[in-house]
Design a binder for these strands. Structure first.
Lengths: 344, 344
DNA sequence: TGTTAGCACTCATACTTCCTGAGTGCTAAT
DNA sequence: ATTAGCACTCAGGAAGTATGAGTGCTAACA
């Protein structure tokens, strides 16, 4: 492909990103040394090739997603972060966060504020962490709380109501059995089988304990469930590139499902995806940028940005990369010791 | 006030609630035996008295909030629930909910779906409950989880990172001290003073434990914090009676603060409030209906509905009342035993 | 004296019509 | 291959024109 044509495409995208309006041949003259007529000819060809399109005959051109693809993959000139910017981004991270979740959330919040887009955090973290504590705590007549903590610092609990009160014997037995057989086990290795073993091991106590064990089991499942959190969703509502009804629909729907669609691919590295590339992503005209972050050398989750296709990639991609890098650093810094312990 | 005039006002409100358009004199003729001219005269007077207003000269009348007030307080004919309706509402309650929160949430969700309004749950429950368990659990190098459970079944935890690892001695001492001195104490009696006492009691351990105690203290505070949960907020977005920008603003803002404004008054009994009556409630043209529910004879929270002023009060108020009654029943049914225990 | 029929008047809303200008494609000259 | 020039297109705004629902007022009526 002609180098001038590429330059023109780049110019169209650049202009479109800032203006949001179809770009005409005259506007391109600022970027490319050629007359408007020449540019028009080239643009007509770019349109034939599928990189541009015209909303209507007498309007300028708008990039198609294929055009954006080419732009993001090869044309775009990424701006690198100044020290000031880095400081600013650092300042928005909650370095005092005591949990991974809080740290990543603060990045997500910052991103959504900086970009006026929605931001998402997808964690796959629990998969690699071990159960470090299971406890059953009585909290009232026939009420029990099951508490589970992983080495990664995730804590969840479930309340369980039984038909009968447990005797001290039962509780003691249960407690010691659980700590003996579950602590140190990777969360994602808890399976139906584990559950069955557990039930039979309970022997005579089985009948009364089954509902409790069932809860325990679903709790373990919930711990491994991929957690997805959206922040700044309202930014999408006020974004004029989107159809409001569509956004409302999205916010209403179980959007985690939707978001999953692209999260799975995101763990391998920075990725930009456009809605038409993801069959059936509900928000038309949107793009999603994701960057994974690591913990102890392993991918622990991803940070993402959902916005219109017309987004300042050159600026926001570095933001995203910087955040994911910082998160990785911070998690390693503080997490190193813990991980060692886990492996013991 | 003339009985015919009241009838006319009632008719205007009734019509307006279903149509959402200004109501003209002809439309009223269906409800009141009088010519349109007479009705017009009466309406002119109702306007002078502040119950109605005209968007513009050649339009019908719209009730003012004073008009709505009169309607809700004295004019409206509440529909009583049929057995079928009751069954339907019952079916939407999650009777298997193991916590109060889940139960009330299910009612809130149901309400928002039935009414196409936003629904809110305000719980003041923790105020009356006792701490039934405090535990500090080590979960990794220098990482500790503080767990707190109340008799009401609320469970919260906080992660805390210390500068140094605690010795077994310290942990043991802490644990026994906490269970001895905090368990059984009403959550809302935890004060700065308690905190200070705690610190001095720690004696030699104080230095290392202070950050942990601080977290413990804020955790206790969080337990008493009034919890407010909004569901079905997107219904407000699609409601044409509202200004979308205003709603987005509301959703964006810390709306709990806003909602607090009327929640406080709501615990005494069913209440309908209109936005102009609440100085500065962000959503113009809205009304809020709240109904308290009880637990063990004491108000434990309130269920609320936020919608446009033009809302089917006759139908929705009974819904709300029914739900809050059912919740009260269910909580007493199952909670009775627990409460006894609490008082012990 | 209260009620009603009739009529002139108002005004938001919707529909048309017209205009403007940004932008195009094509042709002919360079 | 590039460019100047020109005729053409068409979205979007401005201005004008119905339409009709609804009003207030007046005068007649029971």
């Amino acid at each position: 492909m002609d180098s001038r044509k590429l330059k023109i495409l780049q110019a169209v995208v650049d202009e479109y990103i800032v203006s949001g309006e179809p770009v005409g041949s005259k506007a391109i003259m600022k970027h490319v040394k050629a007359s408007s007529a020449t540019i028009r000819n080239e643009m007509a060809e770019l349109e034939k090739q599928g990189y541009l399109e015209q909303p209507h005959t007498s309007a300028g051109r708008v990039p198609t997603y294929t055009g954006f693809r080419l732009y993001v993959d090869t044309l775009m000139e990424r701006s690198s972060l100044s020290d000031d910017e880095k400081r600013m981004l650092d300042g928005m991270l909650d370095r005092n966060a005591s949990t991974e979740e809080e740290l990543v959330s603060s990045a997500s919040l910052a991103l959504s504020q900086l970009t006026k887009c929605a931001s998402v955090v997808a964690s796959s973290a629990p998969k690699f962490s071990l159960i470090s504590k299971v406890e059953v705590i009585p909290t009232g007549k026939r009420m029990y709380v099951i508490l589970m903590i992983t080495s990664g610092g995730t804590i969840k609990n479930k309340v369980c109501r039984l038909e009968f009160d447990l005797t001290n014997d039962q509780l003691e037995f249960l407690d010691s059995y659980l700590s003996e057989h579950l602590e140190g086990v990777p969360v994602d290795e808890i399976s139906d089988e584990t559950f069955e073993n557990l039930k039979t091991a309970m022997g005579a106590y089985m009948m009364s304990l089954t509902p409790l064990l069932a809860e325990l089991f679903t709790l373990a499942k919930e711990m491994t469930a991929q957690d997805i959190k959206l922040s700044g969703a309202k930014n999408l509502l006020t974004c004029k590139d989107f159809d409001q009804a569509e956004i409302i629909n999205f916010l209403d729907s179980d959007n985690r499902r939707e978001i999953m669609k692209f999260v799975d691919d995101s763990f391998s590295g920075l990725q930009v995806t456009f809605s038409p590339e993801h069959d059936g992503f509900v928000i038309h005209n949107s793009s999603v940028i994701t960057a994974p972050f690591k913990k102890g050398g392993r991918t622990a989750g991803a940070l993402g940005l959902i916005g219109p296709m017309r987004i300042d990639y050159a600026k926001f991609i570095p933001y995203l990369e910087y955040f994911s890098q910082r998160i990785t650093d911070l998690l390693d810094e503080r997490g190193g010791a813990e991980d060692e312990e886990d492996k013991r």
